[in-house]
Design a protein around this nucleic acid. Structure first.
Lengths: 178, 178
DNA sequence: TAAATCATGTAAGCAGTTACATGATTTC
DNA sequence: GAAATCATGTAACTGCTTACATGATTTA
């Protein structure tokens, strides 16, 4: 059981999804390619942590909608409560470039920062859109831990704050260029 | 040539280091184990992007102090300027747990957030210490792109801001718990 | 006296990426 | 008419982690 397994269980704990859905929904907090996800879902199903329902489709491969089992919930809960979280891994090529940014002339440095800004703004737009959707469903409070959306909402709010903070930093960095 | 190669070149562009030093200094922006770094340094040296000076030591293995070559600087510069930066990869088990934090009882949830706070505070202390060291060397300005420390300084300032922002978010998250 | 630090290296295995494979439907 | 989206899967390869290997010096 690796961390990706628990990431899949976490998402399926909210509601059932296909592998295709999971791949896209995970991008925010755990990046994985479909070639890693599909075999792992098969394995988790064999281990009885998941079940799936086959949805027949015409012209497309059959769709498998996975649901978490009681055994899956128990395994996930145990991991969350008992296992210490590993030290986060962040690999960002922009930061590697930044370290030696002095090798670039100021115009190129500016371009690199501007590209970062654009990427951040695209992410923020996606995050804000999703947060707006969540906040629109005022039937019960998102800020209540018993709400199934609670963790996801906190995750999105966290990411939004961090992206906004990085944008401010980029503006500061650009202001230092000659 | 993978991103780790460029991360090593970036650091050696500032000044010469041993593999042992590089391993520790990289932790901030690109995590790698020594078992990955040592063979890669050997390869980069064979490709003439690096050279090394052997320092004989008693009781310890000989120390290899690596320096970047002109060819290495050219390769690094080309990568920084011409190659688009890959989309960052972040894998943080805390975020996986957060997604399904509703499975934990409120006391356990609080504990998980508090542990996150402590980890962040430790990181901030390390960052602040290093920033203070850099800022103490006022011989020439850190905020000048021609200064060899410029990129490193920006990197530390960025990380500090993001860690501080996350702490504020954790406080908010804790305030939502019953 | 136990643990951490300094210092480098290899081997085995797991995790993750890229490429191959298929093909209808929808959007630009 | 081309590109993106939906939908799943396998094979080959590269990247990364864990474990093995050694051993003196320094710190708690």
């Amino acid at each position: 059981m690796n961390a990706l397994s628990y990431a899949l269980l976490s998402m399926l704990n909210r509601k059932p999804f296909s592998g295709y859905d999971l791949k896209k929904l995970m991008e925010l907090f755990w990046q994985a390619k479909h070639s890693q996800i599909y075999p792992l879902l098969t394995k988790l199903e064999k281990d009885e942590l998941l079940t799936f329902e086959l949805i027949s489709q015409s012209g497309k491969p059959d769709k498998k909608i996975y649901s978490i089992t009681d055994k899956g919930v128990a395994a996930l809960k145990k991991w969350i409560v008992d296992e210490p979280a590993a030290i986060p891994v962040m690999r960002d090529e922009f930061l590697v470039k930044l370290y030696a940014i002095g090798l670039a002339d100021p115009e190129t440095a500016r371009r690199i920062f501007e590209e970062r800004l654009i990427a951040k703004k695209v992410t923020i737009a996606r995050l804000q859109k999703e947060i707006n959707l969540m906040e629109a469903q005022k039937d019960d409070s998102l800020t209540d831990i018993t709400n199934k959306q609670f963790g996801r909402y906190l995750l999105y709010k966290r990411k939004l704050r961090l992206e906004e903070e990085e944008i401010e930093w980029v503006h500061w960095a650009i202001s230092l260029l000659p």
